[in-house]
Amino acid sequence: MIVCDRLLTGFDAPVEQVMYLDKPLRDHNLLQAIARTNRPLPAMNKRTGVVVDYFGVFSNLTKALNFDENIREEALIDWDKLKATVPGEVERCIESFKDITIADTRECLLAALRAIKDPDAAKIFEHNFKSLERLWEAVSPDPVLYEHRYTYNWLCSVYIAHRRRQRGASKQGTYGELSAKTRALIEQNTQFMDLADSLPVFKIDKDYVAKLEELPSPADKAAALEAILTAELAEDDGGGFTYRQLGERLARLKTRKDAADKAAEERLKELQAIADEKATADEEPERLGLTQPGEYGLFTVLREYSASKDEAYLADCARRMVAHLRGNQLLPAGWSNSKGGRMRVEQSLLAESWNPTYTALGFDADDANPPFLGPAIEELVNSDGLG
């Protein structure tokens, strides 16, 4: 029997003893093909099969079979033993929600999202869900899956809601992360997915509070806001002095393992303060006219270290300093890639800061390494190549 594609993962023929592998199979397709070849057939005294690898897939089987080690081992032994791993993998995934009774209600889904609001808990759930999803894809449509469909469908809705909340992603964009047979399953049973789709998805901007108000409790609002701030500030990592400061505040807040019922209101206030500052920072460059690469980053540093708090004056100083560096051709693309390039910019910026124009900044002209200089150079390095 020669199989090209159609029967590759759907046929069940224990009589098959040898598989000649000459195409780049991986993940659930490879898992099924190997396990079915290895299916025992006592009537023919067949205990295992043989895989002849012409393509080189087995040279890195761990990468080709992106499953946990116990699943890979069972796949290489026996199809029936592989199927027997399904209940344990479902149970491992549901461990993240051991105190939650599964129900097709909004309250149940929100409780699940609160359970994985901690980044470590979220990573464990994501890892276990993707492992289960790959196994489901490999074993489907075997009847062994039937009794687990309700639970798996619910886990899919939690994963979708969690990912959308993390990324502010559209429904279709998040569904695209799921495997084909999983998508088919949830399209047939939409009660859980309808709940996931109904939860508010938002970005941090001046209107984010209105979306947040759609959630019922301070704990739910705090969990949603923490997830989206974590994602957005991670995306902005290295993007600016202000964003790094906000990220540090968020990290400190997340280390506090407060009891949700007692501290949710206070936690929500602190998260909203961070979100409000981020929304302001997102709009500041255009409002202040600091649109050239390096200008806004330098402004945020001056605002932090300067004696003056005059916003217009600080913005003008940032523009002048960047213009000085560009006028002296010290910021060509790639300048930050060399130690000499950085040194020349640092020396020129330091000398420029001694100009009487910047007296109100309050920097000490006798200090060869004033506190603002290092962060300022870092912001200029971040802007290299953006112009």
Rank of each mutant, 00 (worst) to 15 (best):
L199A: 05
L199Y: 01
P200I: 08
P200C: 07
F202W: 07
F202Y: 15
K203T: 13
K203F: 11
K203V: 12
I204T: 05
D205N: 15
K206G: 14
Y208M: 06
Y208S: 00
V209R: 12
A210F: 08
K211I: 11
K211D: 15
L212M: 09
E213M: 13
E213H: 12
E214S: 13
P216H: 09
P216W: 07
S217Y: 08
S217L: 10
D220L: 03
D220H: 04
K221T: 05
K221L: 05
K221I: 04
A222P: 01
A222N: 07
A223V: 08
A223R: 01
A224N: 05
E226N: 11
I228D: 00
L229M: 13
A231E: 12
L233V: 07
A234M: 10
E235Q: 14
E235V: 09
D236A: 15
G238W: 10
G240E: 02
G240Y: 02
G240V: 04
G240H: 02
R244H: 10
R244A: 10
G247L: 04
R249N: 11
L250T: 00
A251D: 12
A251H: 10
R252K: 15
L253W: 04
L253P: 01
K254H: 12
K254S: 14
T255E: 10
R256S: 14
K257Y: 08
D258S: 15
D258W: 09
A259S: 13
A260K: 13
A260N: 11
A260W: 07
K262L: 13
K262C: 07
A263F: 13
A263I: 10
A263V: 09
A264R: 06
A264Q: 10
A264N: 07
R267I: 06
L268D: 00
L268A: 04
K269Q: 11
E270W: 05
E270V: 06
L271H: 00
L271A: 02
L271D: 02
L271F: 04
I274F: 01
D276Y: 03
D276S: 10
D276F: 08
E277K: 12
E277W: 04
E277Y: 05
A279K: 01
A279M: 05
T280P: 03
T280S: 09
A281L: 07
D282K: 13
E283H: 11
E284D: 14
E284C: 04
E284I: 05
P285N: 09
E286S: 09
R287W: 09
R287P: 01
L288Q: 05
L288P: 02
L288N: 03
G289E: 05
L290T: 03
G294W: 00
E295D: 09
E295K: 07
E295M: 09
Y296N: 03
Y296F: 15
Y296E: 00
G297Q: 01
G297P: 03
G297L: 03
G297R: 00
L298E: 00
L298V: 06
L298C: 05
F299D: 01
F299A: 01
T300M: 05
T300Y: 02
T300V: 06
V301H: 00
R303D: 11
R303G: 10
A307K: 14
D310N: 15
D310Q: 14
E311R: 14
A312D: 14
A312K: 15
A312Y: 07
A312L: 12
Y313R: 11
Y313W: 13
L314T: 03
L314P: 01
L314V: 10
